[in-house]
Design a protein around this nucleic acid. Structure first.
Lengths: 225, 225
DNA sequence: GACCGCTTGTGAAACGCTGCACATGGTTGC
DNA sequence: GCAACCATGTGCAGCGTTTCACAAGCGGTC
């Protein structure tokens, strides 16, 4: 209530806040009390002016001549990101990717405990993974309701992704993280984010080729191809 | 050689080209010969004008009054992305995430065959995963050289990520895709992309909370609008 | 208690991206 | 062969983001 953002926080800033949080977590665990925008920016891999401007959207929490108090800044970032409470997530698809996500320590430690696993493979249903029982797809709506799931993660092949997204929306999930390489359509009030692993490689490929074209002109010293 | 981009292709466009490619792949497999910018944009989840502008950076490959020839456009996109040849990748870390990536069909079908797996767990070394032998970390440089690896994928916990990145760079890899939640530093001529799974959830959390705050004030009419 | 050095917070300029609106030019039908 | 139609390609204006440069403010020092 007290901290209503006067200016709305830009999307670009929001996408960097988790990075600052991670860096600050690390500093905190090493008992560092304060940090300057320059050091923080260095650790986060950004420009110092950008870091200051990003943090200024949260409020004026720095001390001139000194820097930012690590503990307090961490609290403010968590608050801005809505991480003052835990958000249980449900993962659909317990293949290698689903298991990797369920195991991923970063989820739980950052306030996103994996509360439920769902799959449609009869051989998997009823078994457990890291202590979490695997439920059939039909139980999805009940799980969302009973566990207070706010975020659904889609980790299945793209052919079934839209159907699962529809199920999640219908069950009342308000945010979806999709790993299937498919464009999903969801209502406007549902937040959808897309992580496409192959896209990242293709972007690398583009830059690689572009760099090589330049060096083509100068010389070629790529070993045996 | 003939098609040297007069204007450099903007980053934002590059990041969308793989999406167009995926959509066009799908159209091609359904024997669709031509597609309009409007239909393509719809399938890719973007604005029609944006799609046209994106494609115009590749050259003038559309036919006014008709649309784009699917086969030809696909070829041009592949060419622009440097996907006219295969780029073998090496994955470091054969945990659940590494296995998920090795299994991921999207890699191979898009020209990025997984050519080598590396891990430092003695229990895993020498065993195989989907027919690919797991090598010790010490073999990294030799594998890169012998297999002509251009892209390295880091799928290990963040504590060892920088060390592995250094090894990859030293071995001559020019592009790195990092899944470890850590900021890595590499030379300027090495391309680095970061995929941070927890960051995506935190961004969702932010928007979720913001949406809730707004509706708190007005009232709730979540239903179909 | 005044000064000096240091770091924050921010106006403003530069840059890149988006989306509209329309001229351009190819195709089809008569 | 001409006209009507249609979808592309792009000039331009608006918007968000980045970056610079500097005033404002805090803490330590003499």
């Amino acid at each position: 209530m007290a901290s209503k953002p006067r200016r709305p926080i830009p999307d670009a800033t929001v996408s960097r806040l988790p990075i600052y949080q991670r860096v600050l977590d690390d500093l905190q665990s090493r008992d560092v009390a304060t940090v300057s925008s320059e050091d923080l920016a260095e650790l986060a891999g950004v420009n110092a002016a950008k870091a200051r401007k990003d943090l200024s959207f949260l409020g004026s929490y720095g001390i001139r001549g000194v820097g930012y108090e690590v503990d307090y800044l961490l609290f403010q970032i968590r608050h801005a990101l809505g991480l003052t409470q835990q958000w249980p997530v449900l993962i659909v698809g317990v293949g290698n990717l689903g298991r990797a996500l369920a195991d991923y320590a970063g989820f739980t430690t950052r306030g996103f405990p994996v509360a439920a696993l769902v799959d449609d493979d009869p051989a998997k249903i009823g078994t457990e993974h890291v202590g979490i029982e695997i439920h059939p797809l039909a139980d999805l709506a009940a799980l969302v309701r009973d566990l207070g799931i706010a975020i659904g993660v889609i980790a299945i092949p793209s052919s079934g992704a839209q159907r699962v997204a529809d199920l999640l929306v219908e069950a009342g999930v308000s945010s979806i993280l999709n790993f299937a390489p498919a464009v999903l359509s969801v209502p406007d009030d549902v937040h959808l984010r897309q992580v496409d692993l192959a896209v990242e490689l293709q972007i690398l490929s583009f830059h690689r080729q572009r760099g090589q074209r330049e060096t083509d002109q100068i010389d070629v010293d790529r070993g045996p191809h």
